[in-house]
Write a protein that binds this DNA or RNA. Sequence first.
DNA 1: TGCGGTTTGGTACTTTCGTATGATAGGAAA
DNA 2: TTTCCTATCATACGAAAGTACCAAACCGCA
Lengths: 137, 137
Amino acid sequence: MKKTIFVFGILIIALLSLFQLSSYSIMAGDLSSEVFIAITAIIFLILGFWLQKRRKERTIQPKPAPIDSEKISELGITDREHEILVKLSEGLSNKEIGETLFISESTVKTHLSNLYSKLNVKRRTQALQQAKKLHIL
Amino acid sequence: MKKTIFVFGILIIALLSLFQLSSYSIMAGDLSSEVFIAITAIIFLILGFWLQKRRKERTIQPKPAPIDSEKISELGITDREHEILVKLSEGLSNKEIGETLFISESTVKTHLSNLYSKLNVKRRTQALQQAKKLHIL
DNA sequence: TGCGGTTTGGTACTTTCGTATGATAGGAAA
DNA sequence: TTTCCTATCATACGAAAGTACCAAACCGCA
């Protein structure tokens, strides 16, 4: 809301400035009114372009659905657990996850078991589905 | 490309019309130049707004990424296999898939094995990742 | 310094998954 | 009609995954 007021303020000021400038210049005979109209056209064309771009960017934001850090901590999921969840989504086996993170397969299993109970699921595929649903992945 | 030319043509014509109008009116003393500048500003602000909106809508189109039926047949994946793939993405076990589709677990395994070789993967989690990558899901 | 959470690891056991192989049946195409 | 594809199911075996329970080391905080 504040931004809207600010933008409109700028617009009004810009318009008034142009009026002043045009009055002076035309009276002084420096420039023709056509030039001012052209300048005004260009400036406001760009301004409209820019404003719409801003607006679009803001409304489009919630599309990619980024990871929801709040949800993660809300569910009590630790960093390590989430790290393993990411590897899970890459289709790695427990053994492979262990190898890439330099820990034993046992540890991976432990983390996964804890993760499953926190996500309230029973299988890794369910965990993936749930994680995507909760925007944790 | 044709549209660009068309739009610029319209713009130039609009500007020239404004010039003509302004010349007549100012000479006739009907309207002040300020009014014309204001009108120009509004028109081109809206125009810029509209143009950017059009542009955004076009560039944003390829976002949703739906299922690629071509890819499916290209890989030789049958309807039944894809059906099972969908159930897989819902986190169901082989047994559960069999129950929802009214077939035995053995059959599910057979379909999945075939699916894995077609997707060139070894595990169900990899199949999910690959399927999403290929826009099959 | 002790408590609680995190990370790590192990053993033992059950369940699920994946592969191999073979078999039957229906439908479409040659 | 024979062949090919799809879908169905079974058995058997090995490989992953998952569960339960336990334990040690570390770290921050009260």
